[in-house]
């Protein structure tokens, strides 16, 4: 079932090869996926090794097979992260920003430019290493959950500048 994600900015539909992102939409850079997958592996593989060694030493070699659980979790997470990464996309339309995300729990958000109170660009140490920056939009409603988790810094800055410019031009406040 589609929730209108297929309907692009000017009614353009259909995916455009590559990442499976419909035309007119922008997906997230590959770096986000790499970073998330790396984090997953960094946490779960040592956990699997530690579990396997401990179980093998204290409970017998047969029990060490339980170490496969974190590995299975890692494999499942690997696929899930990929699907989730592909689901994130955004598009700047004439008057509003449209963000779509989620695989099982889909969510699509529209924020008119005039309603933006604040545009925030954040980048943690790990994100900086991968050359990423997150953009978060705030409106007067705290429930507005309009964020784009990872972008190339130059794109994040371009988006920020464009959003603030458009926001000023169409400012509407409360």
């Amino acid at each position: 079932m589609e929730t209108g994600t297929a309907a692009g900015p000017e009614g353009s539909t259909g995916p455009t090869g590559g990442d499976g992102v419909p035309s007119g939409w922008t997906g997230l850079p590959r770096g986000v996926l790499t970073m998330r997958r790396l984090l997953l592996v960094v946490w779960l593989v040592p956990a699997a090794v530690a579990l396997g060694v401990l179980l093998g030493l204290f409970a017998g070699p047969a029990w060490a097979a339980f170490a496969a659980l974190p590995l299975a979790l890692a494999a499942w997470g690997w696929v899930m992260l990929g699907r989730n990464w592909r689901s994130w996309r955004y598009t700047e339309r004439a008057d509003d920003l449209l963000i779509s995300r989620g695989v099982l729990w889909r969510e699509e958000t529209v924020v008119p430019y005039g309603r933006m109170q604040l545009v925030e660009v954040t980048s943690g140490p790990l994100e900086r290493y991968f050359g990423l920056a997150g953009v978060q939009l705030h409106t007067a409603a705290a429930a507005t959950d309009a964020r784009i988790p990872g972008l190339v810094p130059s794109e994040a800055e371009r988006l920020r500048d464009r959003l603030t410019e458009l926001g000023e031009a169409r400012s509407a406040g409360l």
Partner: peptide, 17 residues
């Protein structure tokens, strides 16, 4: 201020949001 559409897996199966 903003508009959102949310749809869970069961809702998608039933075609509602």
């Amino acid at each position: 201020q903003s508009v959102r559409v949310g749809q869970g897996p069961w809702q998608r199966f039933k075609g509602v949001a």
